[in-house]
């Protein structure tokens, strides 16, 4: 790690997302990071930003177990957004996050537009640098259809949260749609400051010996290296459809994977499931990105992006 420090200064890893400068493009994917637990393994100051686990207006109990299943090169999760609610988060978790020399992005969950807005409003006076709005949640009032799967609903959430929030908002897109560029354009039009993609793909695993679904929830979110080609394709498509910054994620395991997302059009990236395979993955991947840049003599992320030809 330390042998990079000299050269790190010459390289410019910084990135600006909606007026917020990240020291480097590496962030932690929502739901795969806890400052206290992850910080026991590596120095969180190494991160460009910490993206928290989803938080809603009230505590959510989450799904029954088993919530986790391993698949070939990936995993399924059906945690069900268990969280202690925004009041608890602001009182007990946010103060802990503030001690680190990195940005704080709070991931927001909701079952209705009012839920999202309540969380966004409560975060206005806090140390949160940005919000990431997870629109993959089911809209309870609309029969549980995901907010993120319909342009009009995605646009509506964006518009209302944009109206009440004083922070830059990132809209996190679900890949479980026919045309992700349509949703990206809809949220950009309503004032999204950035988009992040992809959330998990809906998946399922059946235990053929027990003859039952493995997850108690039957279906779950598919993540990990197996989904990377889908994520890269979607970042590539969205880059060509909108002008706002993109945080790319989905299966990033190495520094070269980060370069791949940047070439596809990402401004920053998030590391998720990789941190389950290796608890220090976000820090290690940052160092690997530096090695990659040195190998090709790239001085900035922009140079990586511009080196890509089709």
């Amino acid at each position: 790690m330390s042998n990079h420090q000299g050269t790190e200064k010459k390289l410019d890893l910084s990135v600006n997302i909606a007026g917020v400068t990240l020291n480097n493009p590496i962030t932690t994917a929502s739901g795969t990071f806890s400052a206290y637990e992850s910080g026991a393994f590596y120095n969180l100051n190494e991160l460009g930003a910490m993206i928290t686990k989803g938080v809603a207006n009230i505590p959510w109990d989450g799904n029954p177990t088993p919530r986790i299943a391993e698949t070939y090169g990936g995993m399924l999760n059906a945690v069900g957004l268990q969280n202690p609610g925004i009041d608890y988060f602001i009182a007990h978790e946010l103060p802990y996050l503030r001690q680190f020399d990195t940005k704080i992005i709070v991931n927001v969950a909701g079952r209705s537009i009012e839920d999202y807005c309540e969380v966004a409003e409560k975060l206005n006076g806090t140390a949160a640098d940005m919000l990431e709005v997870n629109i993959s949640c089911p809209n309870v009032k609309k029969g549980g259809i995901g907010f993120g799967t319909h342009s009009e609903m995605a646009a509506k959430v964006t518009k209302e949260v944009r109206r009440v929030s004083k922070k830059p908002i990132i809209i996190k897109l679900t890949p479980n749609v026919t045309d992700i560029t349509e949703i990206a354009k809809a949220v950009e039009a309503e004032g999204a400051d950035a988009v992040s993609l992809i959330n998990t793909l809906l998946g399922m695993k059946i235990d053929v010996h027990r003859k039952k679904p493995v997850l108690a929830n039957k279906m779950g979110g598919f993540s990990g290296p197996a989904i990377k080609p889908v994520a890269v394709r979607m970042v590539y498509q969205v880059r060509r459809a909108v002008n706002i910054p993109i945080i790319g994620l989905g299966g990033i395991m190495t520094g070269e994977d980060v370069a791949e997302f940047i070439m596809a059009g990402a401004d920053a990236v998030s590391v998720g499931t990789a941190a389950f395979v290796n608890p220090t993955a976000p820090a290690d991947i940052k160092n690997e990105l530096i090695e990659y840049m040195q190998k090709y003599n790239f001085k900035s992320l922009k140079e990586i992006r511009e080196a890509f030809t089709e």
């Binding site: 795969t32 992850s38 686990k53 177990t65 919530r67 986790i68 945690v79 941190a275």
Partner: peptide, 28 residues
């Protein structure tokens, strides 16, 4: 015993129901 994701407390995958003074009578 429960199926785990990260195995170190970050992912909230491996929960169990423990009696607590909450609405449901337990906490994950």
């Amino acid at each position: 015993e429960e199926r785990m994701g990260c195995g170190y407390g970050a992912c909230v995958g491996c929960v169990c129901k423990i009696k607590e003074n909450t609405e449901t009578g337990y906490e994950h």
